[in-house]
């Protein structure tokens, strides 16, 4: 392309010849090039069309469902989408989704930042690569296996911890636990934390590695300890990176389906206690209710899926914008 533009501007005098020359020199007019450009641009456009189609089709089916809904979509505490005057609302799902994702973030972000710092600044060079690989393995495990493990291994082992939480913090109401299988939002949150750990770790590690070496060396030269170097030069530099990494993790946690559906025992109630089983999330509700859903019930589930789609779109879009903005100025440090 650069060559083409140069030769285009090079010959100044003869005006009639330029059209001929331009045609010969411009690469894109060769039939092969034109086809190839068309194909590759076309597939880029296909991607955009798919995104638009997702929004359009979901909105269409959701509108069908909402027009017959006798409950309030936002505030009804029920999901009777198969009933003849259908009545359903997303209040419980929204609560469960937000709460479990917040628990996941609260647990995962500090740990992930710690691991990212471990890989970028603490671990010996020889260890850093295998550790990064272990984190990648954590990302490669399918969510259904996490679900199986969470339901059959993690949940039974949490009863002791939860009873302890109940005796110590039970008075808050949040940590009340009445015994029984702990298939609760808290367990889901812990599992989600493990699942979103890799993405937060990987993104923040990238950012920490970009931290300007000069700042670090300057701090070291002034006698700072390693922790002070990190606190004064790496963390301030990486703050926006950590934020966007957390938002990417949040996006994952919000949309996680099958692990939640295996671990949680859902109810359509909002309860203040996070340790007792109950609650639900958007994605889990779709997976659990789908098999018995009538055609109308499916539309209702699509309506809740649309809400999930919009939320994750916003969260991911915002995260990507933060990353993109920092890309522009981080180049100056290279």
């Amino acid at each position: 392309m650069d060559i083409a533009t140069q030769t285009e501007t090079a010959p100044p005098p003869p005006p009639p010849a330029t059209t001929e020359q331009q045609r010969a020199s411009r690469g894109a007019t060769r039939p092969g090039d034109r086809i190839f450009l068309g194909l590759s641009r076309g597939s880029g456009i296909v991607l955009l069309v798919i995104m638009a189609a997702i929004a359009a089709f979901l909105t269409y089916r959701a509108a069908l469902a909402l027009s017959d809904n006798t409950g309030n979509f936002l505030t009804t505490f029920e999901w009777d989408a198969n009933a003849i005057p259908p009545k359903f609302g997303i209040a419980v799902l929204a609560f469960g989704t937000v709460v479990s994702s917040i628990i996941a973030l609260v647990i995962a972000v500090p740990v992930a930042v710690g691991i990212a710092l471990f890989i970028s600044h603490y671990a010996p060079r020889k260890l850093a690569v295998p550790i990064a690989y272990v984190i990648d393995l954590l990302a490669a495990v399918p969510s259904i296996v996490y679900g199986l493990w969470g339901a059959l291994v993690v949940a039974p082992n949490l009863t002791g911890f939860y009873s302890w939480l109940d005796t110590v913090l039970g008075w808050t109401g949040i940590f009340e636990y009445q015994g029984g299988a702990p298939r609760s939002l808290m367990t889901v949150g812990i599992l989600l934390a493990i699942m979103i750990l890799p993405i937060i770790t990987n993104v923040s590690r990238e950012v920490f590695l970009q931290a300007p070496k000069m700042h670090e060396e300057a701090a070291l030269a002034l006698g700072a300890t390693r922790w002070e170097v990190i606190r004064m030069s790496v963390l301030p530099f990486g703050r926006s990176g950590i934020i966007s990494a957390s938002m990417l993790g949040l996006g994952r946690a919000l949309g996680e389906t099958i692990a939640v559906a295996t671990v949680l025992s859902p109810t359509f109630l909002i309860s203040a206690s996070l340790l007792d089983p109950g609650g639900g999330t958007f994605a889990q509700n779709i997976a659990s209710k789908f098999n018995e859903a009538s055609e109308y019930g499916r539309d209702a589930l699509i309506a809740s899926g649309l809400v999930l789609f919009l939320i994750t779109l916003l969260v991911n879009g915002a995260a990507r914008m933060i990353i993109a903005r920092r890309k522009e100025y981080s180049g100056a440090n290279a």
Binding site: L47, I50, M51, A53, I54, F57, L58, L248, G251, R252, L254, G255, E256, T257, A283, I286, A287, L301, I302, G305, L308, F309, T312, L313, V315, N316, G317, A319, R320
Partner: peptide, 14 residues
């Protein structure tokens, strides 16, 4: 970038 974050269930619903 945004598409990487689409929940798999939403792709299924689409």
């Amino acid at each position: 970038d945004v598409m990487t974050g689409i929940p798999s269930i939403v792709a299924g619903l689409f």
